[in-house]
Amino acid sequence: MTMDRRTVLGLGGVATAGVVLAPGMTLIASPQPDKTEASGDQRWAMLIDVNKCDSDCTACTKACRQENNVPLFGDPNRDIHWIRKLEIRDKEHKRPSVSLPVLCNHCEHPPCAHVCPTQATFKRKDGIVLVDKHRCIGCRYCMLACPYKARSLVYHKTTIPEDGNPKVPIRAKGVVEKCNFCVHLVDEGEKPACVQACSKEGKNAMIFGDLNDPDSEISVKVRTVKTQTIRADLGLKPHVFYEGL
């Protein structure tokens, strides 16, 4: 394990962590200190290289569904997609179509959070936009406000699937949900499930990292290659960047 930035930041925590660690908990299993909190020192973001993305590959969407127990009801109008593959083509059909995944953009100025009457949707200090499902009253105003159709209401009762991931809760009916940048993995120092799946597939089209760290792969890329965000004109400052769009 290299001394990356996060470990350095967490060093203060590690010192105390050794004391509080419960029996059976080893430092090797978890590189993280015992106690961490989201902090403004980080700004998580994603970069998707569209050129590396194939139109028949759905590794990311499958991985997300599996990791986060995202339900399918068999009704295309109500199925929940935290991440979906989009096919886009110029209207004159002069150029070949482009395939790309779209997920919540974790906007810097998220309209979904601005309109939420209970602050159930909020932006964490590290920039991840989350829905507090304990607080959402299901008014669906955020679904009207999000320009990227990133949000879905849970229309039916769901159950924890047999082969589901016990680490991620399912969502009760009547609340709104969306991609959470796999916050449970990110907090453990891992990459989101879709990014992991993408590199496992050998495509390496998606990278994830901290924009506040000038040396992270994503920071370097965003500085050096031409990237775009979806509907930048709306001024929401999305934090999912696209290369080669």
Binding site: V20, K35, R124, K125, D132, D187
Partner: peptide, 11 residues
Amino acid sequence: TVREGLRIRSE
């Protein structure tokens, strides 16, 4: 935990 990202792994 939800809002501040507090994770106390031992607890």
